[in-house]
Amino acid sequence: MNTNIKVKRILTRIFKPIAGIIIVLITVFPIYWLVAMSVRPMSEMTGHISLLPHSFTLEHFAELFVEKGFGTALINSIEVTLISLAVSLLFGLCASYVLTRNRFRVAIKKPLNTWILIVRILPPIAFTIPLYIMFNKLGIMNTKIPIIMACILINIPFIIWFMVGFFRNLPEDMEKSARVDGANEWQLFTKIVLPLVLPGIAAVAMLSFMYAWNEYTYSIIFVQSPSTYTIPLKLALLNSDDTLTNFGLVAAGGVVSAIPMLLFIIFAQNYLITGLSSGAVKE
């Protein structure tokens, strides 16, 4: 009996770290491979490919920005992401605050709440075709407006559904006493309530940023002129562009596309993680 337990203990002591290493390898390898491919010269990509690059080069990054116009896509992505983020945060925060406050009795609250949830669940394809026709009629297919609108469409329901939880955790009584002290509704909202939910706003802003940054489905349908390509579209194009795809270019583009996530992980990991876990569990 005693030796049995001892054997078991030794086995787990050996088995657990090995399992951990395997898990980490499987998780990290495709990411490592992306980075490794982006910094090795072309000559190391055909024939036998070594796990570690033998030499280091930034030529793919240079070619990407100088010859392939990746800079335009990068700027487009930043523009689309930031504009859509600002608008959806503004709209979403205002709406979700009103949705959680009992003193605001507006008839549209209930249907709006239900509709927001349904939109959050429905796939993009449910709205794409009429939107395409609408943007086409307005003659704005060659601008960034359709894709900005699409990103706002993705993020408003997400922000509202996420922030409702945060606002609800703040007792309404506190606002009542502040109101007695002479603050008007707008001051209440901006000076008292918003600062208290700042952690929630930080988390939701990062996640919304990521959704807009990674957006692909609406983009591939709405974005038509190469001058308005965002990073995901540009990457997809690089991948199918040449007969023999230049892995180095694609990999370098992939590395650039992941920079915002890396920054979030380095500087705001805890917000990101609470955001991810509480945002989803928003039953």
Binding site: G20, A251, M261, I273
Partner: peptide
């Protein structure tokens, strides 16, 4: 381990797809 495990989910889907297509 927790943050390492999360990496695949945080990467853009397009980037993930391209990395796998290279492999």
């Amino acid at each position: 381990m927790r943050i390492t495990m999360l990496l695949p989910y945080l990467f853009p889907t397009v980037t993930v797809a391209l990395s796998w297509s290279m492999m």
